[in-house]
Design a protein around this nucleic acid. Structure first.
Lengths: 211, 211
DNA sequence: ATACCAAGTGGACTTCAGTCCGTTTTTCTG
DNA sequence: CAGAAAAACGGACTGAAGTCCACTTGGTAT
């Protein structure tokens, strides 16, 4: 046998060596602890490596930059969020709740998620070298697809005019929830999460009413 | 006479020394040239100082960081933009164009401005240390006040339901025009400026229709 | 004119992100 | 179990932002 055929769709990158896997876990634990103690932003990559007792090279071999590390830390919670949302949307769908109402519900959940993970999300956005980005926007990307999907279904169901630009509308509804923009609203404008949720719901409602 | 009373409302910070003013101008010219030649992002502060033939300390005394330098470079054009917009809005108002239409017009103008100055605006956003920000958001701040004002007038004129959260709506309409968010739409989603303008106008229209 | 001093200046220095590469460890193969 | 290839490791190094401070200079008061 020359090479095992890749069967799994996801994360089949021919497994890390044992020491590598151990270090990945160690680094994630260390980072999480330091973040809890000092907050995300002030902790440096060098500090994480040092406290974990490995060289910087090792740290950077696992995580190309601080953003990737933060994303890894968020990964489990992101998966959980996605699962719970898919589930809730399915339930709403079974109860034949209109798509635009599902959308409002989903946006509310995204607000909560953003609120909860603001520091990590800001850091992820910060350390994403412009042209790269691909997977760093993963949280946003999934949210975008979901919102876009709900909008299109709403259009198909006649809840929303079919000539509305669904991709743009999806982006516009999520734009206030981009980490830095959201933080600005929270910290400088003094908006509460509820206020943001309500505001977005209202926009969605009015879009429906206009159709 | 002990101290001249400050009469001017703006920029009365007791004037720079002649050499300082000369260096400010020199640095702005140099930065502008380098930005034109190489683009904004790859030019370093050290390079600007070096090419201008001054020490880094001098550069940083004038401009606390790259964001401030970029903002200074944008300042004239920002003033021109504000003037032209105030003028246009005044004209629209005289022709008794509805406020929400004025708003759509203004948002279109902001899209154009953002489009034109994207590199500088991104850099300004990048180098704004979190807690600071005050004047770095000046472009956004003025846009925000204008949009907010138009929304409230629309409400007073009965064009828009009075229970809409005007401050939030202003922020939500401008959120897609925050530099990084806008760039994402342009470069990764492939939206054209027209598409963004149209999309925002449509939202504004539908808000009106729903009231 | 002189002398004083706040403002301005230059560049070495610190800090942090991220890279590089010679050395060590794991794992695979016979 | 030995030997070799691949992967991982560590920490010195680079590059850029931003700070610091001893020194100089332009405005002002005498």
């Amino acid at each position: 046998m020359t090479r095992r055929i890749e069967l799994q769709v996801h994360s089949e990158e021919e497994r890390e060596r044992r020491d590598a896997a151990a270090n990945r876990a160690l680094l994630l634990e260390t980072a999480e602890r330091l973040f809890t103690e000092q907050g995300v932003e002030p902790v440096t990559m060098a500090e994480i490596a040092q406290v974990a007792g490995v060289g910087k090279g090792t740290l950077y071999r696992r995580f190309a930059h601080k953003g990737e590390l933060c994303l890894a830390l968020l990964d489990n919670q992101l998966l959980a969020f996605q699962d719970s949302q898919l589930d809730e949307l399915r339930q709403l769908h079974e109860r034949e709740v209109p798509y635009l109402e599902q959308l409002a519900h989903f946006l509310r959940a995204v607000v909560a998620f953003t609120e909860q993970h603001m520091p990590l999300l800001c850091e992820i956005a910060q350390y994403t070298p412009v042209p790269d980005g691909e997977d760093l926007e993963r949280p946003h990307s999934w949210q975008y697809m979901t919102v876009h999907g709900l909008i299109r279904r709403a259009q198909n169901a006649g809840e929303l005019a079919p000539d509305v630009d669904a991709p743009f509308l999806a982006e516009a509804l999520l734009a206030p929830l981009v980490a830095h923009t959201y933080r600005f609203q929270r910290e400088r404008l003094g908006f509460t999460p509820e206020r943001v949720s309500e505001g977005l719901s209202r926009i969605v409602q009015d879009l429906a009413a206009a159709s």
